[in-house]
Nucleic acid binder design. Structure first.
Length: 947
RNA sequence: GCCCGAGUGGCGGAAUGGCAGACGCAGCGGACUCAAAAUCCGCCGUUGGCAACAACAUGUGGGUUCGAGUCCCACCUCGGGCACCA
C-alpha cells in the first residue's frame, strides 16, 4: 500500500481512491460491454449497418497485436494500447466512425516449447492465455469492438492465411510492370508467344517441363536456401541462437550451415516498389531509412577485365561485380575464388604446384570459416595478369579462399586503399596500394605509411584517364554513375542494380503454425489445393517436438512433427486428372504469416465467403482524397502503433503481401499502414549481485549507502522491463492499487510516446493526485454530492479553459499525450485555486479528461446529470476570441541576451514594438550609449538589438 | 561490424531557430491540526551576493546565424534492429 493511499478511517468517505476507482471502473466496463458501446458499423457484410455508418468520416486505429504469453500482458502493452485507445476515443468525439479492436498473434514457439515440456496441447494453453489477456484488456478499459477480435490460430482465420498463400503461389511478378499477376496469364503469354519461357519453346516443352518452368516464376517457390541446421535439436536455428563457436544456444550441439529445400517468397521482385512507395507513407524518416537500408538498393557495376595478352588464358575476360566502380582506378590486383573456372587456364607452369595445393586446402574449409574477417590472409599468385579497363595497368591475378564462388561472380577486383580486407591482403603479399582519395584524417596520400585502409568519403585523386575524370566529383553516387557510363561506352561493363534484401524463407519444420495448402505428386512437384479444401486443419498429435539426430550428422534431414503423422501426410485426391496419391507438405508457415494481413480481417472478421468484403476494405482502408501536397493517398490503416523492433521485418513482409493482394485486385489500398508510430520501451531499474546475476527487483531495498537484496549489496542498472532482468511489474497490480485510469494516465505522462522511459513507482502518485483533485473540484468528498461553483466563470478562467481546449486538441492530433495531460493538470490547478469548478466549465473539462481516464470521465459525466455514455459526445471546441490576449510582453535582447521586457498592445506594429524596446531603461543601460546597428522584431515573440 | 535513434536540474520530462527547465516526483518553508497524515499556499539549475542582480549552464569539441537544446561537421556514451524470439 502506498504512502498516499488513505489508509485511516478519517479519510473522507467519497474521496477518489483506488477502492473507489475499482467500483467505478467495473461498473462502466460492464455497461460498455452490455451496450456494445464501441461497436463500429460496417457498410456491408455480416457486421453491415449502412445507415449507422452514415456520412461520418472513418478512422481505423490499430495496435500491433500481442502474442498471448502465459505471463499475460507486460507493461509495454498497455503503453501502446492506452495511446491508441485515447486516440480512438478522441476520434469518436470529433465525429468519426472508429474501428478499434484487438487480436492475438497466437502461433509461435513459446506455446510449442511449453507443449514439448508438458505434453499440454498448444491449442489449450493458447485458449487459456487468450482468455486471460482478454480479461486484462477489459480491466484496462480499452474501447475495443469485441466482435472484431481475431486469433491467428483459429481455423476460421488461418483458412484465409492459407488462401492468401495460394494467391501468392498462383502468381508471378511481371518484370516489366513489377506487378503480381495470375499464373494463368503467364501461361497465356507463353502460349501466345508474347513471352519466352526460360527453358525453351513452350510448345515443345513436356507437361513436366512446363510445370518446372512455371514454378520458376511463382512468387512462392521451393528452393535450396542456406540455413543453420542443428541435428541435435532436429531444427533449423536462428543466427542469434548460434554461439560464436558454431554451436546451438540450447543444448550446445553443433550447427551446420547448409542448403535445404525450403519455401521461399519472391519479395525481392517487389524491392523497387517497397522502396518507392515509402514516399506515400506518413512514417518517420528514421523508419523509412531503416527500410530503405534493409532493402539496400545500390547501383554497382559488372566489370570485365581482359586477361593480359602475354598471360596464360589471354583472350579470356574475368568478370567481377562491384558496388563501388568509382574506385576502379585503385584496383591494383584481382582475387579469384580457388574454385573459379578460369583458375586452371590462368595458372602458369611455375605456379601450378602452389595453386593446386592451395585449392585442395580451401576445399576442406567451410564457407563460414572462410569469411571470418579476423583470419590471417592467405592466397597464391596464378602467374597471370589482367588489364585495368580504366588505366590499362597490368594487375596480378591471385586466388584466395576469402572469395567465395557462391557470391557474385566468384572474383573480385581488389582496391586495397579503401577496403580493409584487400589492404591486409596487399600488405601480406607486398602488392601495390594506390591512394585514390585524399584522406580527410590527415594521414596523407603516401600509402606506404598507412596502418589501415581509408574508408569514408573524401575527394578523389589519381582518378582520371583521357575520357573519364572523377576529380572534383562530390558524391559517390555520381562517381559510380560516371564510371558506369564510361564502362558501358567502352564495352568494359555496365551498371547493375543490386539489393541487400533476400527472398523470404517461409517454411518452418515445426508444429504450431499454419499447414501449407500444398500436396506433392509422385515426382515431387508441388500442387495447390483448391480453395474449397481450406482450411487445411493442423492435425492432432501429442508429439510436438521434431525428431532429433546424431548431433554430428550434418547430412541428416529435418523431420517435423507433421512428418510422423502417416495417416495425415498421404492422401488420395482428384485435382482434375483423376484420383492420385499425394503427399502433404509437412512444413508450417512462420509466425509472420498470420501478422501479414490481420488488419484486413478486422474489417470483416465473421465473413465466411471472402477474407474481406471489398466494400468494407474500400470504406476502412481505401485511398482517401489526394493529400494536401498533391501526392496520391495510398490508403491503409489511419494509425498503427507498435514497437520499433518491428521496423523492418514485420512491416516489410506485411507490405509485400498487401501489394500482391492489391495487384490481384483483392484490396483497393496500395499500402497497409498509412501512418505508423513507434512507441518506446518501458525501462526499469534492474539489480545484479556480486556474481553479476539479476535479483528480483521488487525485493531490493534502498539505503543511504546503496541498494540491498537480502542484506547483500547489489548494483543498479536500467533495462527493458521484463522477465530476464527480473524487473517486471504486472499492470494488473497497478490497477488493483490505484485503478486503471491512474495507470493509463501515468503511462501517458511519463514522456513522449516514442521515447523509452524508466518506470518509477513513486512517480505514479503524481497523476493519482491529479485525479483526486479533479474529483474534489466536482464532488464533495464528505457527502459524495456534486459540488459546482454557482457563479459564472470569470474571463481569466474562460481564457484558461479555451487555451486548454485548443492545446489538448492540438496535442491529441499529434499523439503528444504527455503534454496534453500537463495542460489538463494546469487547468485543474487553476480550478483548485478558484476553490472548485464553475458550473459552466464542468462539461468541457470532463469531456477533455475522458479519453485519458474514461471511467472517471463517464462517472463524472453521469453525475453532472447526463444520461448515457459520453463516448460519442462532441469534443469541446475552443472559441478563437478567447485565445488572443490584449497585450503581449516582448522580451528584449541586446546581442542575444535578454536585458529587459516591454508590454505593448497585441496588434502593435513592428516600429511601435521597436520604439518601446529602445525606450526601455534596462535596454538603454545595456546599450551603454552605443547606437543599435540593427533591430530585429519577431512578431509576437521577441526583439533583438544588435549593438 | 553494419543500419537507425537518443543524451537538458537530485529524478521523469517541457521548449514552430526566438525568455531553457511547462507539468509531475523528490526536497525545503508556511497554513490547518493537540499531533501526525491528508489538504491548501509558497520556494526549488549551479556559483557569487543581504538584495537588486551578475556570471555560468542542454554529453564533448568545432561551425552556421542578429539569435542554437533545436541546423551542420567530428567525437564520446547509451538504446533498438541485423532476416527461424516476437
Amino acid at each position: 500500500m502506498s504512502a498516499t493511499e488513505p489508509s485511516t478511517a478519517d479519510s473522507p468517505p467519497h474521496r477518489y481512491s483506488g477502492a473507489l476507482a475499482q467500483g467505478i471502473e467495473a461498473r462502466w466496463q460492464d455497461r460498455w460491454e452490455a451496450e456494445g458501446t464501441f461497436e463500429a458499423p460496417n457498410p456491408a457484410g455480416p457486421l453491415g449497418d449502412p445507415e449507422a455508418v452514415g456520412g461520418r468520416p472513418k478512422r481505423f486505429v490499430l495496435d500491433m497485436f500481442p502474442y498471448p504469453s502465459g505471463a499475460g500482458l507486460h507493461m509495454g502493452h498497455p503503453l501502446g494500447f492506452t495511446a491508441t485507445d485515447i486516440y480512438a476515443r478522441y476520434s469518436r468525439m470529433i465525429g468519426h466512425n472508429v474501428l478499434y479492436t484487438m487480436g492475438f498473434d497466437a502461433f509461435g514457439l513459446p506455446a510449442e516449447q511449453y507443449a514439448v515440456q508438458t505434453g499440454q496441447h498448444p491449442a489449450i494453453t493458447t485458449a487459456q492465455n487468450v482468455a486471460n489477456i482478454r480479461a486484462q484488456l477489459r480491466r484496462l478499459g480499452f474501447s475495443h469492438d469485441l466482435r472484431r477480435s481475431i486469433d491467428t490460430t483459429d481455423p476460421g482465420y488461418y483458412r484465409w492465411t492459407q488462401w492468401i498463400f495460394l494467391q501468392i503461389f498462383n502468381s508471378w511478378c511481371d518484370p516489366e510492370t513489377k506487378k503480381a499477376r495470375r499464373i494463368d496469364e503467364l501461361v497465356a503469354e507463353f502460349e501466345a508467344g508474347t513471352r519466352a519461357p526460360r527453358s525453351g519453346e513452350w510448345a515443345t516443352l513436356t507437361a513436366a517441363q512446363r510445370r518446372k518452368e512455371l514454378d520458376q516464376w511463382r512468387l512462392a517457390y521451393v528452393s535450396d536456401a542456406p540455413v543453420n541446421w542443428c541435428p541435435g535439436l532436429g531444427t533449423v536455428v536462428a543466427n542469434e541462437e548460434v554461439t560464436a563457436d558454431g554451436r546451438s544456444d540450447r543444448g550446445n550441439f553443433p550447427v551446420f550451415k547448409r542448403n535445404m529445400r525450403q519455401w521461399m517468397m519472391r519479395i525481392t521482385s517487389f524491392a523497387d516498389r517497397l522502396i518507392d512507395d515509402l514516399d506515400l507513407l506518413d512514417w518517420t524518416d528514421a523508419l523509412k531509412t531503416m527500410q530503405r537500408n534493409w532493402i539496400g538498393r545500390s547501383e554497382g557495376a559488372t566489370v570485365h577485365f581482359d586477361v593480359a595478352a602475354d598471360s596464360a588464358a589471354a583472350g579470356e575476360r574475368i568478370t567481377v561485380f562491384t558496388t563501388r566502380p568509382d574506385t576502379l582506378f585503385g584496383a591494383t590486383f584481382m582475387v579469384l575464388a580457388p574454385e573459379h573456372p578460369l583458375v586452371g587456364q590462368l595458372t602458369t607452369a611455375d605456379q601450378a604446384d602452389a595453386v593446386a595445393s592451395y585449392r585442395r586446402a580451401a576445399e576442406a574449409k567451410k564457407d563460414i570459416d572462410r569469411q571470418d574477417e579476423g583470419r590471417e590472409k592467405t592466397g597464391v599468385f596464378t602467374g597471370s595478369f589482367a588489364i585495368n579497363p580504366l588505366n590499362g595497368a597490368r594487375i596480378p591475378v591471385w586466388i584466395a579462399d576469402y572469395v567465395l564462388m557462391g557470391y557474385g561472380t566468384g572474383a573480385i577486383m581488389a582496391v586495397p586503399c579503401g577496403d580493409q580486407r584487400d589492404f591486409e591482403f596487399a600488405r601480406t603479399f607486398g602488392l601495390e596500394i594506390i591512394a585514390i582519395q585524399d584522406p580527410t584524417d590527415g594521414r596523407g596520400t603516401d600509402t606506404s605509411t598507412w596502418a589501415d585502409a581509408f574508408v569514408g568519403d573524401a575527394p578523389y585523386i589519381n582518378s582520371a584517364n583521357e575520357a573519364l575524370d572523377l576529380h572534383g566529383v562530390a558524391s559517390v553516387a555520381e562517381g559510380v554513375h560516371l564510371t558506369n557510363q564510361y564502362l558501358a561506352e567502352h564495352g568494359h561493363g555496365h551498371a547493375t542494380i543490386t539489393f541487400k534484401l533476400r527472398d523470404w524463407l517461409f517454411s518452418r519444420q515445426r508444429y504450431w503454425g499454419e499447414p501449407f495448402p500444398i500436396v506433392y505428386d509422385g515426382d515431387g512437384n508441388p500442387h495447390a489445393l483448391p480453395s474449397d479444401a481450406l482450411p487445411v486443419l493442423l492435425p492432432e498429435t501429442d508429439q510436438f517436438s521434431p525428431r532429433t539426430f546424431d548431433p554430428d550428422d550434418a547430412m541428416s534431414n529435418p523431420e517435423s512433427p507433421l512428418d510422423r503423422l502417416g495417416h495425415w501426410t498421404t492422401l488420395t485426391l482428384d485435382l482434375g486428372d483423376g484420383p492420385q496419391q499425394y503427399r502433404r507438405d509437412t512444413n508450417v508457415m512462420p509466425q509472420w504469416a498470420g501478422s501479414c494481413w490481420y488488419e484486413l480481417r478486422y474489417l470483416d472478421p465473421t465473413n465466411d465467403d471472402v477474407f474481406v468484403d471489398p466494400a468494407n476494405e474500400q470504406y476502412w482502408m481505401g485511398p482517401q482524397a489526394t493529400k494536401a501536397d498533391g501526392r496520391a493517398h495510398p490508403g491503409g490503416v489511419d494509425l498503427y502503433v507498435g514497437g520499433v523492433e518491428h521496423a523492418v521485418l514485420h512491416l516489410l513482409y506485411a507490405r509485400f503481401w498487401h501489394k500482391v493482394l492489391f495487384d490481384l485486385g483483392h484490396v483497393s489500398s496500395v499500402e497497409p499502414f498509412h501512418k505508423l508510430f513507434n512507441q518506446g520501451y518501458i525501462l526499469a531499474a534492474a539489480y545484479t549481485d556480486e556474481r553479476g546475476m539479476y535479483v528480483e527487483a521488487s525485493q531490493v531495498e534502498q539505503r543511504d549507502d546503496g541498494w540491498f537484496h537480502e542484506g547483500r549489496p547489489v548494483s543498479r542498472e536500467y533495462g527493458k522491463m521484463g522477465k530476464s532482468l527480473k524487473n517486471a511489474l504486472d499492470p494488473m497490480d497497478l490497477c488493483a492499487e490505484y485503478g486503471a485510469d491512474t495507470l493509463r494516465l501515468y503511462l501517458m505522462s511519463m514522456g513522449p510516446l516514442d521515447a523509452s522511459r524508466p518506470w518509477e513507482s513513486k512517480d505514479v502518485v503524481g497523476v493519482y493526485r491529479f485525479l483526486q483533485r479533479l474529483w474534489r473540484n466536482l464532488i464533495d468528498e464528505d457527502s459524495g454530492e456534486l459540488r459546482l461553483l454557482a457563479q459564472p466563470s470569470d474571463v481569466d478562467t474562460q481564457r484558461a479553459l479555451h487555451r486548454t481546449i485548443a492545446a489538448v486538441r492540438e496535442e491529441l492530433d499529434n499523439l503528444r499525450f504527455n503534454t496534453a495531460i500537463a495542460k489538463l493538470i494546469e487547468f485543474n490547478n487553476h480550478l483548485t485555486k478558484l476553490g472548485g469548478c464553475p458550473a459552466d466549465c464542468a462539461d468541457a473539462l470532463v469531456k477533455m479528461v475522458s479519453p485519458f481516464a474514461p471511467h472517471v470521465g463517464e462517472e463524472l459525466w453521469a453525475r453532472l446529470g447526463h444520461v448515457g455514455s459520453l463516448t460519442h459526445e462532441p469534443f469541446p471546441v475552443a472559441d478563437p476570441a478567447l485565445l488572443v490576449a490584449d497585450t503581449v510582453e516582448y522580451p528584449v535582447q541586446v546581442n542575444g541576451k535578454v536585458r529587459g521586457r516591454v508590454v505593448v498592445a497585441a496588434d502593435a506594429a513592428d516600429d511601435v514594438v521597436q520604439a518601446a524596446a529602445l525606450a526601455d531603461d534596462k535596454v538603454q543601460a545595456a546599450l551603454a550609449g552605443q547606437a543599435p546597428k540593427k533591430v530585429i522584431v519577431v512578431r509576437g515573440r521577441m526583439v533583438n538589438i544588435v549593438a
